[in-house]
């Protein structure tokens, strides 16, 4: 087995476990998968000419959908426990499907991993949405386990067709 294959086999269960934590609403355990200095980032995605593809994603520093540190993520999780976070109370029913993993070691020992996702959300009576996109993660070993030190989430959407984006990706 190559180093690359071993890494793949090590990371795939990490992402599967993360998906189960999200879908089982174990958000405090989920937020523990991130390093204390994490950047959780979701840029906007624009319609630009093919030859200007470098402008398709907004840069860090522009208005983003998410650009959050650990404290903001913890705040979002804590919010759900108040019983009055109305977008998620009653809670959404989600299913995170994670695949297409590619991963490689960086020189500093961290890992660059990207995955594709399809996330189904059902809410209240008949609301439902399918969120498609990819994650580009930087993973770091902390106390023997992998943690996400940076996550960039790219949605396959321009105008979001959803009433809100209240689930984690």
């Amino acid at each position: 087995m190559t180093e690359q294959q071993a890494l793949w086999l090590e990371l795939m269960p990490f992402y599967i476990r993360e998906a189960w934590l999200l879908d089982e609403r174990r958000f405090k355990e989920w937020v523990d998968l991130f390093t204390d200095d994490v950047l959780y980032f979701m840029p906007r995605r624009k319609n630009v000419p093919r030859r200007e593809a470098h402008r398709e994603l907004t840069e860090l520093g522009d208005l983003a959908i998410f650009e959050e540190d650990k404290r903001y993520l913890e705040m979002r999780v804590a919010r759900l426990d108040t019983g009055m976070a109305w977008a998620e109370d009653p809670p959404s029913r989600t299913r995170h499907m994670i695949g297409n993993l590619e991963a490689a070691f960086l020189e500093n020992g961290e890992v660059e991993a990207r995955t594709a996702f399809l996330v189904y959300r059902s809410h209240l009576e008949t609301d439902h949405q399918l969120l498609s996109g990819c994650r580009e993660d930087t993973l770091r070993k902390v106390d023997g386990g992998w943690k996400v030190a940076k996550r960039t989430i790219v949605l396959d959407a321009n105008v979001l067709l959803d009433k809100n984006l209240s689930v984690f990706l």
Binding site: M42, L63, A64, I65, F66, E67, E68, Y72, M75, R76, R79, A85, W86, A87, L124, L160, D162, K163, N164, L165, S166
Partner: peptide, 23 residues
């Protein structure tokens, strides 16, 4: 900017709680 986008917008902590009421 980060405070604004954390509260407002589709994923904003404040704004996401408005939508089902308005709907």
């Amino acid at each position: 900017r980060i405070g604004s986008q954390a509260n407002n917008g589709a994923a904003g902590m404040f704004e996401q709680d408005d939508v089902d009421n308005w709907r």
